[in-house]
Design a protein around this nucleic acid. Structure first.
Lengths: 139, 139
DNA sequence: CCTCATATGTAAATGCATTTACATTATATG
DNA sequence: CATATAATGTAAATGCATTTACATATGAGG
């Protein structure tokens, strides 16, 4: 007996390229890679930009927000947001201080430098995404 | 002068939720999180599964493939594939040996254990993705 | 008031994804 | 053949994303 190749029809799709999850993964990583490249001059990444933008959005009327508010808005893990917020704090784009009404919570505030960076980043992101999503194929 | 809230209309979208990139990010992470949970009993993750499946797909007719072939097929970074393949090798799901025709390249081969794991994983993934993508909204 | 379940956030560990730099081998060009 | 350029893969470092475990604080019920 010789070694035989394993049988393929393991999948109901002709090939991996035809699986929607496979293409979602590939398209997402391409989008993120491309946007990260556009944001590199500002020392931002797509997730850093997103958290910064959400901070700006949720505090647009001067309200205080906590990390948990960002978690709820983004629907993401609280540890993840903690990591990103910690680095944004380290880099001077946001401030974090303990809330006076809930000593567990940390109130987030965008610094002037953070707001300036956000204002510069926004048109880069919108220009990028307009180009990226206009041609829906693989860019 | 009192401190004023930073002006919002920084974006042409009413809010972050309306940006296509923002929703792509959120939807992708939800999909990957959900699929990783489905694959956990097999000690697989979505990227590990994807690389394993591509190895199976590209070797379906018995041909030899290299890591670079996987990189080209997936359109991903070669260092990234190197990491994932290294762990799949460590876990006994694939074998890696130096090519005899190109001493730089490493030939990949799925082990019986790897093929068995792939055969178990495939229906989990297809069931998961059918449910996930059927309702296009946020699941 | 006291206790307990819940909420907010972090430390440590792991894997995903990329960047930079490097070693080795192939290949094209002189 | 000799050398320059390109291709294949890895080590180390960084940031993204999640999991587990933990510390502290809140709030509900006794």
């Amino acid at each position: 007996m010789t070694a035989t190749a394993p049988p393929w029809p393991l999948s109901s799709f002709p090939g991996p390229q035809d699986s929607p999850g496979f293409t979602l993964w590939r398209d997402f990583t391409r989008w993120q890679r491309s946007l990260n490249a556009a944001l590199k001059p500002l020392d931002l990444t797509q997730p850093r930009f997103a958290v910064l933008a959400v901070c700006g959005w949720l505090t647009r009327d001067g309200r205080d927000i906590t990390q948990q508010d960002v978690v709820d808005f983004l629907g993401m893990d609280r540890m993840h947001i903690s990591q990103i917020a910690s680095r944004l704090d380290r880099d001077g784009l946001i401030l974090r201080r303990a809330s006076r009404t809930d000593l567990r919570a940390k109130v987030l505030r965008i610094t002037p430098a953070g707001h300036d960076t956000l204002a510069r980043a926004m048109p880069l992101v919108e220009t990028h995404d307009r180009a990226f999503f206009h041609r829906k194929g693989t860019p």
